[in-house]
């Protein structure tokens, strides 16, 4: 008999007294004197999508790497559910329920979907033999929830479409009961239909009470899906705003000029519109 994994159940995630899933405080990372992330504080509630936007090199990805354990910060604190957390590597992050879906998908193209979902966390029998049927079964169940049309469970993921590959990447995060999801450009490589599929998925995961950091170049994605938006500029947070309080133009201005909406002058806005 092999251990059959339990269906991923939305367990109430731990939150701080103020209701935060995650609080990152005063986090800094520098690479050879360049402050990629400079004293950034950011937080996330359950059932919320926080959009993290900014130009190239604004520090979004580095900030999220700190949370997912792929980058050790020079300074700063991370609180998970109000408790100090020590995240030194991706394993630590996963233990705190943090899963990251990377821009490059981080899939092993030569392996099939179940092997990718369980990459680094393979199910084995008591004698240490891989339990492929159990992994396939669990993958089928997660996929039934995420992408019911997904069929190719025994095919190398290299031969799948972009949307199917994205489903595999998300299944990997969801199967292990993540409470905090980091999605780095989740729709960057997808066609319109597939993008819509992923958007629906994000809304669904939000309903289930997950907290999601959504990093994207696509301002429309972020604007449509997020409750709040944090704008980064040269390694710092310009501002974190409620999505309902701002227009897309204002967010764009923050990204490009690195200033809060009320600090932007008419002239600057004019220039912005003129340039494109």
């Amino acid at each position: 008999m092999s251990a059959i994994p339990q269906e991923a159940k939305p367990t109430p995630p731990p939150v701080s007294e103020e209701g935060y899933l995650v609080e990152m405080r005063d986090v800094s990372v520098s690479f050879g004197g360049v402050h990629a992330v400079n004293g950034v504080s950011i937080d996330l509630r359950p059932g919320e999508v926080l959009g993290v936007v900014g130009g190239n090199g604004a520090g979004k990805s580095t900030l999220m790497k700190v949370l997912s354990g792929a980058q050790i910060p020079d300074s700063g604190q991370i609180l998970i559910g109000g408790q100090m957390a020590s995240i030194r590597n991706t394993r630590d992050a996963r233990a705190y329920g943090i899963e990251c879906i990377y821009q490059t998908l981080a899939l092993a193209d030569n392996l099939h979907a179940p092997a990718n979902v369980f990459l680094g966390r393979e199910l084995t029998s008591r004698t240490g033999v891989l339990d492929d049927p159990a992994m396939e079964d669990a993958t089928r169940r997660v996929m039934k929830r995420l992408n019911p049309r997904f069929r190719n469970f025994r095919m190398a993921v290299a031969s799948l479409s972009g949307g199917q590959r994205q489903s595999v990447a998300i299944a990997r995060a969801v199967h292990f009961n993540a409470t905090i999801l980091i999605m780095d450009e989740p729709t960057a490589a997808l066609g319109p239909a597939e993008t819509e599929q992923v958007r629906a998925l994000i809304r669904q995961l939000k309903e289930e009470g997950l907290g999601i950091f959504l990093i994207s170049h696509d301002i429309h994605d972020v604007y449509d899906l997020s409750e709040r938006i944090s704008v980064m500029y040269h390694g710092k947070i310009v501002d974190t705003v409620d999505r309902d309080d701002v227009t897309i133009d204002q967010v764009l201005a923050m990204i490009i000029l690195g200033k809060k909406p009320d600090e932007v002058t008419e002239a600057e806005l004019e220039a912005l519109h003129a340039s494109g």
């Binding site: 991706t90 981080a106 899939l107 092993a108 990459l119 680094g120």
Partner: peptide
Amino acid sequence: YAIGGNPQAAELSG
């Protein structure tokens, strides 16, 4: 096999 398929993915997956 995972390392051969995508070394970064293998590393990131722990």
